[in-house]
Write a protein that binds this DNA or RNA. Sequence first.
DNA 1: AAAAATACCCAAGCTTCTTATGTATATAAT
DNA 2: ATTATATACATAAGAAGCTTGGGTATTTTT
Lengths: 114, 114
Amino acid sequence: MSNNNLIKGSLQTIILKLLEENEKMYGYEITQRVKELTEGEIKITEGALYPALHKLEAEGLLTTEIQQVDNRVRKYYSLTKNGQKEVSAKMSELQSFVGNLQRILDPEWRPGLA
Amino acid sequence: MSNNNLIKGSLQTIILKLLEENEKMYGYEITQRVKELTEGEIKITEGALYPALHKLEAEGLLTTEIQQVDNRVRKYYSLTKNGQKEVSAKMSELQSFVGNLQRILDPEWRPGLA
DNA sequence: AAAAATACCCAAGCTTCTTATGTATATAAT
DNA sequence: ATTATATACATAAGAAGCTTGGGTATTTTT
């Protein structure tokens, strides 16, 4: 896992959204899913991911469940009810931010344009 | 100037892009332009803006020019040649990041869709 | 046998932001 | 007339969120 800047603040939203779609995922799986979806362009570092997961759990948005797979431990995360509510909030926050970014950076841009 | 999170890392790109379009701007003007373009949704704080401007100047991407307007001092910033080169680099970096974000967060999304 | 992949974790340090503060002039409101 | 808001710059402490670089352990590939 290495080299990509930016993200700063969107990692939580990414985690929550992936868990909304997948019911239950473990850390390593999340890094692989993101890598796959972005064709290797975004690589979530473990040093960023695990603290983020622990924080979301501490905030009551995620719960964990340990599973044993071939002598290896997997820690599955899933959304709590509060977590489910937070997904939409974080998503619309991020979408509106991206919209505003476009308005600043691309004068031609308006919603509903390619 | 207050209350908006996110941004984290995109401020430099915003500054450079605005200066590409406007030749010369002063700090306060930048905060007002962003506020105007986003209908008040993004407010650049001065505590974020001025250090960012100073850093870009120290990196040789911006130059300054002091002007006196009605007993008030204005510090105009404009792009250096290196600054002009950096705009496109920072822009494509950010655009590709936003594209990747969409791919993660919106499974339906693909380039050239509303 | 060695390397890479799978799977978790932590800590130091850096960057970037928020919040709070300070200085100073001009204009609008009470 | 005085106060508040707008204009215009700046700095500094602290928080948040990363990167980098460790560490542990098993399984699969080379």
